[in-house]
Structures are given as C-alpha cells and as structure tokens.
C-alpha cells in the first residue's frame, strides 16, 4: 500500500504525458489521414509511398530517425515534438487505410444523390463521405487509438518521461519491478478501458 501511495503520483504525472502525446498523435493521424486516404484512393504515388513507409518501418526506428538522424540534415527537433510528430505521422498511415476502407462503404448512389443536389467534390468529401466513413469505421479508429496509446511507450527512447519510462525509473530505484510494472499496466488498462467505453457509449 505504501508502495502505491509513493509510486502513483509520479506515474500519474507521467501518464498525463502519455495521454497528451497520444491524443495529439491520434488527432494528427486523423487529420492527416483524410488527405492521404483521398490520395491513396486516387492512386497518387506520394500517398502510396507515405503509407508504405510508415506502415513498413517500425515505430521505434521512425522515432530514432526523427530524433537522431534529422539533426544531421540540420533539422533539430525538441524531443516532445519529434515524439508527437512521429506518432502522428505513423498513426496517419494507418488511419488513411481505415478511412479508405470507410470510403468504400459509402454507397455509390449516395454520392450520386449528393452530386444531383449540387454538392462540390469537397463538400461531398466533408459532408457525406467523411461522416459516413467515420461512423462506419469508429471501432477501427478506437482500435488504432488504443494501439497508439500502447505504442507511445516507445517514446521513452528519445528521453521523454512517459508512463513506461516512469515505471522503469521506479522499478530501478525501489528494486521492486513487479509492483511497478503491475501498476503501470493497470494505468494503461484504465486508459484503454475508458477509450473502449467511449466507443461503446456512443450510438453508431
């Protein structure tokens, strides 16, 4: 009990970093995912290359490249920026594929009805295709969000104190790895259960 009282505050503070960076990464992924999905649908080379790279290279390597390789090109990024941007860019590649799958569920008739009613291609995307696709793909988006929250444990490699890094630090300073990692796992579980509840609690 003493251990929890002592370890919980720093872990919750670190969990705040995890939540914040994950949330920004997921939001960035969703926002960037839309134009990338449109690009993939139109078979644009840049979009297909983007998705292939970010889905094909492990996130850990991407983080290393962003934080350690970019300075060689004269681009020096703060650790939190490198971590958030990499997480967001990686998430965008997966979101693009989810959104593209969602677009496929939009009936051709619905798009034709929209054209007949006078919507521009941009309006059709924003008012018809995206809302329908997002509604259909919400489970997949929540699933991706959960994966991003868990993948955020990798950002400790660029020196950011997030939940996993905090658990590591507590485990090494107290020599009690089991309760430290158990508590860390419980906090991750709580965060992801909240995400799942959010997914279930809203009607499709």
């Amino acid at each position: 009990m003493d251990f929890i009282a002592e370890a919980l505050p720093p872990m919750l503070w670190a969990a705040g970093n995890t939540v914040w960076i994950s949330a920004v990464g997921i939001a960035l992924g969703l926002v960037l995912g839309v134009p990338i999905a449109v690009g993939c649908e139109a078979r644009r080379a840049w979009a297909l290359t983007y998705v292939s790279f970010f889905r094909g290279v492990p996130l850990l390597i991407q983080l290393m490249l962003a934080y350690y390789a970019l300075p060689f090109l004269g681009i020096d990024l703060p650790a939190w920026f490198a971590a958030t941007a990499t997480l967001g860019l990686c998430c965008a590649a997966y979101m693009a594929e989810i959104i593209r799958g969602g677009f496929a569920l939009v009936q051709k008739g619905g798009l034709e009805a929209a054209r007949l009613l006078g919507l521009t291609p941009r309006q059709i995307l924003l008012r018809i295709r995206l809302p329908i696709a997002l509604q259909a793909m919400r489970p997949a988006v929540i699933n991706e969000a959960i994966l991003i929250v868990k993948a955020s444990s990798l950002i400790s490699v660029v020196g950011i104190l997030e939940l996993t890094r905090s658990a590591q630090a507590i485990a090494s300073s107290t020599f009690e790895p089991l309760p430290a990692y158990a508590l860390c796992g419980a906090i991750y579980l709580a965060m992801n259960l909240l995400l799942m509840m959010f997914a279930r609690g809203r009607p499709a």
Binding site: Q107, G109, G110, E112, A113, A114, R115, L116, L117, G118, L119, I128, P131, I132, Q135
Partner: peptide
C-alpha cells in the same frame, strides 16, 4: 451540364439516403 444544373430529382434503387 453537370447533374445539379439539370434541375432533376431522382429516387435511387437503394434509396441512397444519407445514413448520418
């Protein structure tokens, strides 16, 4: 002319209502 300039109403086979 584009579809919306034709002042045409259409009912589709699968109704094509916007589900959202």
């Amino acid at each position: 002319s584009p579809p919306h300039r034709r002042q045409i109403g259409m009912v589709f086979q699968n109704y094509a209502l916007f589900p959202h």
